[in-house]
Structure formats: structure tokens, C-alpha cells
Amino acid sequence: MSQDIYVLIEHNQGQVAEISYVMLAAGRQLAGIHGSQLFAMLLGYQAQGLSLDIAADKLLYIDHPALKEFAQDAYLLTLTEIIKSRQPRVVLFGNTTIGSDIAGAVSIALGLDLASSCRYFTSDGKFVSQICGGKIMAEGNLSSGTTLLTMVPGGYKPEEGQSEHPPVIENFSPPVLDNLRIKNIKFIQPESFDIDISKESILISVGRGIQTRDNLELAENLANSLGGVVCASRPVIDQGWLPTTRLVGKSGKHVKPKVYIALGISGAPEHVEAITGSETIIAINTDPKAPIFDIATYGTETDLFDLIDVLVEKVEAAKAS
């Protein structure tokens, strides 16, 4: 087994996902600890151009039409070949719509240990993962064999995984990719008729704590008063109370408003990763242990149902004075 650290570069429709750079930063730390090299793995089709700002010692490039976009079966066949032949110390995947689909399958297929939702590595190389909506952390040693990990954002700055010097590219021949069972048909872009919440400067976001569809009116009143827009976390969107264009989270929009007001949002990691770019976060939640308070600028445990009407009145009064 080598001591090298491998990172799977995630990309979609010609764009490298930010988590890739986070993993390169983490991978650089691990390579330092193990005195080894950092390899990036780029699976794609005529996609070498995506490698330009990747901060790795080497980039393993695998080119095949079946790898043009992510497909779990083609990725599984390719990654198992690479890992079998290179035997890295560690392989990092994103805890994402791409990495999470593939890491567990590689783990079972090759009999390698997998830890998910790793946020950072300690200075002596232990992984620290978050579970239970970010309320509990689990720390552990890498296994003796190749260890697979999926990573969540938050522990490393993406800029640390970027470089002005393109990495040395090494081509790796893809395995036979015939009889694949997953095919990409088309990509559907988010509906264009709605506003783009990632460009709004004031967002009033509602979570499970809003309880009913009728209560959305409270958030709308506050949004109207502040000149903001209402958006939501996953449970509210899944109820069909707001369109998916208003979803803030891992598979929704990442937002960066001046002020983000979270009403009844607990702060699950999938939501938090999408709002950390906000200038000011105000969290209103009756659960004093809600993880949202760990990243908010201001917080209050007051019941939103007691607060919002009063707040709207005061905002109106302040505007008129």
C-alpha cells in the first residue's frame, strides 16, 4: 500500500464543485502527515480543462465518453480499478450527490473501511465526523488498509485547494465500460420564472418550526416589511408549501445575503453548508441546542409565533420614523 492521498474531483456540467477544493485542502494536510503525495482523480470526457486550478501534486485523468457526466456504475468500475492498482492510503469523496452515491459501493466492492461526513482531520491525522444533524462528533483513527472518507464542507477553505499552477497530468486508461445500466438523459435547469434567491440581499427562511402552511404568512409579512424574500429548508419544500426554487440547502441554492433570518430552522448540516456565506444570520428557534445557533450571528430562543408580529410592527414603526 502506498501512503498517497487521493481525492475524487467532482464536477457537473463543466463546473468543478467547491467540495473538491475543500477535499484538496484536507488531502494536502494528510499528505503532509504521511509524508506522501496528493493525487487528484478527474473522471470525464474531454475534460482536462477542468484541472487547471487544482492544487495537487499529480492529477490522474481518465477519459471516456461514459464518464462525461456522473453515472454511479461507470464511476464504480473506474474507481475500483484505480484504487486496486494504486492502493492509496486515503481516498476522499464529497459527502454529496456524487460522492455519497459512490463511496459506499466502493467500500463494499473492495472491502475497504469507510467513514462518512468527515469535517476535518486532527493534527495527528484522526478523522472527525459529524452525525445526528451535527450535534455529535465522532473521532477515529484511519484503518490499517486504504481508508475511504466522505467529506462535508466547513473544515477547510476552498481557496486552499486551488493553485495557479496546473498539476502534472497522468493519464489512466479506463476499464471496459460496456453494458452500463445508468444513462444520463438530460439536465433540467431550475425554473427560470421565479426569483433567484442566491442573488437576494434579505432572506426570511422558514423551517419545520413554522408548523403549518398558513403560518407562512408570518414569514411573508416580515419579508414584505423588510423588502426581503421568503425561502425555506428541506421539510417545508417537501410539504409543497413553497416551490423548489426557494430551497436553501445541499441540493437547493447556496445563498449569501446581507441578512438571513432563520425561523424555526434547526440547522442540519445540509442546510448550514448553504448559508455560511451570509453576512449576518439571525436564528429564531425555541431549542437552545439547535446547531443553527453555532453559526448564527444573533440568536433568540423566543417562540417565533410570539415574536414576528411584534417585530413587523417595530420594523414598520422604524421605517416611518
Partner: peptide
């Protein structure tokens, strides 16, 4: 298939929101 966990702990964060307390009026 899973590496050994050596320590599990409550999430301890370096930062925490400035908590605003009081009546709804004062908080508003």
C-alpha cells in the same frame, strides 16, 4: 467496513450566536 471510533463527543463549537433575551418586545 468502518474504522474504529476512539471518541464521541457533543459538538463543541468555537463560535456561538450572541443570544438575545427578554420579552418579545425587547427582542424585537
Amino acid at each position: 467496513g468502518f474504522p474504529e471510533v476512539t471518541r464521541m463527543f457533543q459538538s463543541e463549537t468555537s463560535a456561538h450566536a450572541e443570544m438575545i433575551t427578554g420579552s418579545p418586545d425587547e427582542i424585537a
